[in-house]
Design a protein around this nucleic acid. Structure first.
Lengths: 222, 222
DNA sequence: TGTACATCAGTGAACGCGCGTTCACTGATGTAC
DNA sequence: TGTACATCAGTGAACGCGCGTTCACTGATGTAC
């Protein structure tokens, strides 16, 4: 809803007093989240980072809740971009089913890799409270956030007849549970101390084992 | 290390000024954690709960860190007890491999069920930072905490020749990732709004699908 | 084109809050003789 | 058994901190005539 204000002004900085305070504050909030996670996102710290009075933030956000929500959205956006990049880098695949499974694996890898590369942003995006009940408003998803991508790909596997409609929820939840749990365990769980090489081996093993189980689910059809 | 002080004094309350302040504070911390999660565990709140001055807590804990660590240990203990109860309720099974798989499923169910029943305690136990690198000091585990139980059961499957030694780490991590991710998603994730019945259906589906994948892993032996 | 005015993004000071932690202390408990 | 003393679990007051939020304000920007 603020997009209209910024569209024509992005190039000419120093519009009004600051120019683009809202976005600057969101950027600062993301920087704070990158170190320190969601707890580090405070109105005062973000304002301090930008070089502005805390009060100024209240012109653009309802308060701490509003700022944190915007930061979360920003983090989800960056994560989505990283995952989408993985998808785009994927080589073409003739078989549509193999292609969909490969893409599913790729976003899983992207999910975990982003969590490992940017734990603070990851935890801000998906660490504690996720926000509203996503699965209930399934139709709202245009595949532009991590969960939307997942839903789209699983929907594709159903459309292709590889999975049964009744498997939908189970597949969605198992997939997300695995990559989310894996990320948490690797970030600051019992595996936090693992060496880089071991880490990626573990991720690889978990992901391929998962897509094998998906394959089996597809074939048995249960 | 304080056990010696309390052993003979549990029955006669009001020993010294309070009698059992350390344990009382841990209990209060757990109560605070039950509502509000780990963030709610503060020195002042715990002292307030017990009806004692904040300073008094410093006789028993190094400070906030010490109290939180003790609270976490308490939460892990309660979780372990709940999981162990599940294990004990399991009917006998002739086939040792089926038995081990059944037990693995049972602790998985116990893990998720505890998370759902006591989200605050669960998040305090395993929500953010888990503590030290558990998998590296594997031998320290006597199967008395959730992770130790998992390690023991997977070790048993290896001993029985059902899993290969090289699958150990992968199996441990996949298992824990799944139940941990599932718990998080159900607690305050996108599935938080799910009805009770749907919730347990989802848990059941994810767990049986997982143990099927374990079965397949065992048979292919890769 | 110039001036008067409305708008609104920012300032600066202040509030009350709960937190962790430290200080010198008090007074009950347990112990030595 | 009684008394003097050491121990030590607790008190009460205070500190400095960063937080979210509100207030009356200022001064630059954009607009109407």
């Amino acid at each position: 809803m603020w997009a209209g204000v910024n569209i024509g002004a992005m190039s000419s900085r120093a519009r009004y007093h600051h120019g683009d305070l809202r976005n600057a504050l969101i950027g600062a909030a993301a920087r704070l989240a990158a170190h320190g996670g969601p707890e580090a996102v405070t109105v005062r710290a973000a304002a301090r980072e930008v070089g502005v009075t805390p009060t100024a933030a209240y012109r653009h956000f309802s308060g701490h809740d509003g700022l944190l929500a915007a930061a979360k959205e920003e983090c989800i956006g960056r994560m989505s971009a990283a995952m989408r990049k993985r998808l785009d880098e994927l080589p073409d695949q003739a078989d549509p089913i193999e292609s969909a499974i490969g893409r599913l694996e790729a976003i899983g890898r992207g999910y975990v890799d982003f969590a490992l590369a940017e734990p603070g942003l990851f935890k801000t995006a998906f660490g504690g409270h996720f926000g509203a009940n996503h699965l209930e408003k399934e139709h709202d998803h245009d595949a532009d956030d991590p969960h939307g991508m997942l839903i789209t790909l699983i929907g594709e596997l159903i459309r292709l007849g590889y999975l049964d409609e009744r498997q939908r929820l189970g597949a969605e939840i198992s997939s997300w549970s695995l990559v989310h749990g894996l990320s948490m365990l690797l970030i600051d769980g019992p595996l936090a101390g693992l060496a880089e090489a071991d880490r990626s081996a573990v991720v690889e093993q978990a992901l391929t084992s998962f897509s094998r189980s998906l394959r089996n689910a597809g074939h048995t059809g249960a």
